[in-house]
């Protein structure tokens, strides 16, 4: 699975990072960076939760 970020929606709050650190990271400029574009199988559940909890609906998973 790949993570797709809608940059027009992401505000860099970092809710995703708090759920799946190391996959998502808000940098010192307040921008959220993906540390990996494809989700390692063992972290899928965590990333799914991160996608669901983004308050801005900025995240999506695609095959």
């Amino acid at each position: 699975m790949r993570i797709i970020v809608d940059r027009t929606r992401c505000t860099g709050l970092g809710m995703c990072e708090s759920v799946a650190p190391g996959v998502f990271e808000v940098n010192d400029d307040g921008e959220m960076e993906l540390r990996t574009a494809t989700v390692p199988g063992e972290r899928l559940a965590e990333v799914e939760q991160a996608v669901a909890c983004c308050p801005n609906e900025a995240l999506r998973l695609a095959p």
Partner: peptide, 21 residues
């Protein structure tokens, strides 16, 4: 240490959920 105590680091684009579209 990383930000030399500068809490500005990271402000700017990060308005958080209040800017929720």
């Amino acid at each position: 240490r990383r930000t030399s105590g500068d809490l500005d680091a990271g402000v700017g684009t990060d308005a958080g959920a209040g800017k929720r579209r």
